[in-house]
Design a protein around this nucleic acid. Structure first.
Lengths: 319, 319
DNA sequence: GTTCGGGAGGAAAACGTATTCCTCCCGTTC
DNA sequence: GAACGGGAGGAATACGTTTTCCTCCCGAAC
């Protein structure tokens, strides 16, 4: 490349980067040659010389998970703005695969790591000599940088909305008690509803079927309940379906809220669901920003809890 | 690193790679030093020297799309077996962003590219001086390597299944006629059903709502229809719901098939859907294999059509 | 004792960039 | 006319591998 412009490699570098002191004419000549050859400076050489790879590893336990994906795209979005690229690593929740990926990423001298998963339970930190940000599932070490969803706050938000609508006999239906996200949402609901929560939270599974079953359970004990706060959109959808089948109108008789704002569920539900948006894309974006700052030497340890956002639809508002 | 073992860089390389001729004792000494230092050879140097980066770019128009994701994870899976890693690029369907990503990937000297999207319409080829494989959406240039889903064959498979069950009055409900996947599925259904297709295919949208509407439309013209072949699981789910609401039993009165085998839809439907699995993960895996072969100099031009697989569930089989 | 062979490991070049330092030349000034 | 200053661009080095070629040394053989 440098040869074509009749110039040394060092000079070519200066010309293309606008550094050093060169005549304008030389600079142009080099640029012309580069354009003509379709020359793009080799990032590997640059990386070797600069010490930075402008690459970060994305380690996920499940890259096809519903939660990991928005996080990934958010991260990709924020990183691409900074000319960084993402190396994708799907560990499939296998510690061996994870170890293997970590050494591979280290061999590639990534500038940092984003670690994410499909559950909100804190995870054991990864050993890494570059900055790490945990997204969605925090690290067990509070000195690490983590950014997570505010499950508790989201449930509070949903319940307050229902209370604001005058609902007084509220039931909470959610996923398995062994899932942290379920217990945190339940705690938030209980705290915000107080005496208005007329039944202990119903733990089950994250399915429409459970939503349908739970409605029957709940109505048996509280025939005049007027609101159901659900731990997921799928559950809420099941709840709506069964309520309709039993002749109760949503939202006039019973208001229903979902959780996750999973478009395909929340919008296809009859009626469409008022639900708690987890803002996962923002979460991924935030994780990437924190990582960039950490790479630049401005680390921010601790767990950041991203506020949720309540999306209002007909399941609480009428038509 | 080499210094610690009291050995030259070249010798260290030979020791760690098991090449050259070294005494066993020396080899061990170097390996010990490496282990002790936690030393991992720098992939950038290796890449510069070998001419290969062991990296491929994944260019997708929509990394959060329901179709792109399984393709991505399949590709990641197949590539990681070959020690290759994926650089993620989400163009958001913006040609400018795509161009930018292509030059960035070229600067990183990726060994190849996988191009994917969220629609099956052929797309304009990308300019690249490394091998490219198109997954899901083929290139318009038949000389390129593409691997796509067999929408036509999938519909044939679904219809044959229904014919095998003795159904004789079949209706096809699918997405917008401007979507190639809709027209190809419709063509397959028409071809396989012949005179058993008692109504022109109903084109609409990919939604449950359209499924519900279409059932009413169809029943008005063919009150005794006994099977509905749907262009998507969402449509099929809507179809099932409305049939039930109208008092028709699925599958005893009307058998219903979906398309896509989108687990969350197909399994949550009442009843669960017999549906055409597109095998997108296999498609991604296949794309990666073709790319690896192309990188190794064994290019296979042309469009490969991956066969679909019919998944049987209660919407055609009874309980 | 000399030569040959072969094994062990170092030296050097190559991959491509960025940066520092050096040289050379030209113009200006005294 | 000589000296100084500064601008332009080349040379060298560093980043970290891999690979080829060389050298050196030791043992064996004649």
């Amino acid at each position: 490349m440098a040869a074509l412009a009749g110039v040394s490699a060092g000079t070519a570098s200066k010309a293309l980067n606008g550094t050093g002191s060169l005549r304008a004419e030389t600079r142009e000549r080099v640029r012309d040659a580069a354009r003509q050859l379709g020359f793009t400076p080799d990032a590997r050489g640059r990386s070797l010389s600069s010490g930075r790879s402008y690459t970060v590893g994305l380690v996920t336990t499940d890259s096809s998970g519903r939660f990991s994906i928005p996080v990934m795209t958010g991260a990709e979005d924020a990183l691409s703005a900074g000319e960084l690229m993402l190396l994708l690593c799907d560990t499939r929740d296998d510690p061996l695969r994870e170890r293997h990926y970590l050494t591979t990423l280290s061999a590639r001298r990534v500038d940092g790591l984003i670690v994410t998963g499909r559950r909100t339970e804190p995870r054991e930190p990864v050993r890494s000599d570059v900055p790490v940000v945990y997204a969605f599932n925090p690290s067990t070490d509070p000195e690490d940088t983590s950014v997570v969803v505010d499950d508790h706050g989201g449930a509070v938000e949903a319940v307050r909305h229902l209370l604001g609508l005058g609902r007084q006999r509220i039931v909470h239906v959610t996923g398995p008690a062994r899932h942290l996200s379920a217990t945190e949402r339940a705690a938030g609901a209980r705290e915000a509803a107080g005496a208005q929560l007329v039944l202990e939270p119903l733990f089950g599974e994250w399915s429409e079927r459970w939503g349908r079953q739970a409605v029957e359970l709940a109505l048996r004990q509280v025939p005049d309940l007027d609101a159901v706060v659900c731990g997921s959109d799928q559950i809420a959808r099941g709840v709506c379906d069964r309520l309709r089948e039993l002749g109760r109108h949503v939202p006039d008789d019973v208001a229903v809220t979902g959780f996750d704002n999973w478009a395909v569920m929340a919008e296809a539900s009859r009626p469409p669901l008022t639900t708690v948006d987890l803002r996962l894309t923002d979460l991924g974006r935030r994780a990437a920003q924190l990582l960039i700052e950490a790479i630049d030497g401005r680390r921010q340890p601790g767990v950041q809890r991203l506020p949720t956002r309540l999306v209002l639809r007909e399941s609480t508002l009428g038509v």
